[in-house]
Design a protein around this nucleic acid. Structure first.
Length: 176
DNA sequence: CCCTGATTCGC
DNA sequence: GCGAATCAGG
């Protein structure tokens, strides 16, 4: 691939916006992150303050939605803050989890609800869950982004959702 | 292991 | 000039 003026402009723009070299390489296409870094140096663009990245993770916005509920269900809403390491980036997210369980009998399996990383299209990699959330036409669209086993397109939870009948999906409801 | 940027050096 | 390999780090 050639470093056309157009591609150089895009590189400058994305780099100034704080995107990582690998992310920029993904958007440009046809180049490796090394190529991007090398070009950045040749262009004498300002490097990052400190190696290892200092990207700022967007905080997941709270959402208060009371989901419709069938009569014989008990719900429990818990709020917790979790921190997770993603590369050199510390992600701190406050989430609300609403668990809906049937009162008839104790469910044998408690579904592990994934914590969405709310990734954009460019953040997806070989091992992130590609479960879409929201309306792709709107700007609040994002992908789950949780770790997916091996090179599976979805995380464990969403893989279940993808192939289980709807009646099986009501055991747990994620809110937020 | 995942990721980040920085540098070197043969092409 | 280019970028893979390598290094150094979180």
């Amino acid at each position: 691939m050639n470093w056309t003026d157009e591609r150089v402009e895009k590189l400058k723009k994305l780099w100034s916006e704080g995107l990582s070299a690998s992310q920029i390489a993904a958007q440009l296409g046809g180049v490796s992150r090394n190529a991007v870094i090398g070009k950045v140096h040749r262009l004498s663009l300002p490097g990052r303050a400190k190696a290892g990245g200092t990207a700022t993770a967007a905080r997941a916005p709270k959402r208060n939605t009371s989901a419709p509920r069938a009569p014989n269900y008990a719900s429990r809403i818990t709020t917790r803050t979790v921190t997770r390491q993603q590369g050199a980036t510390m992600l701190k997210e406050e989430i609300e989890i609403e668990t809906v369980e049937e009162m008839e009998y104790v469910p044998a399996k408690n579904v592990v609800v994934p914590i969405s990383r709310r990734l954009g299209l460019t953040e997806l990699t070989e091992r992130t869950c590609k479960w879409p959330v929201g309306d792709p036409m709107k700007d609040d669209f994002y992908f789950c982004g949780c770790d997916s086993p091996d090179s599976s397109p979805y995380c464990n939870y969403h893989q279940r959702l993808a192939y289980q009948p709807v009646s099986e999906r009501r055991k747990a409801v994620r809110v937020g």
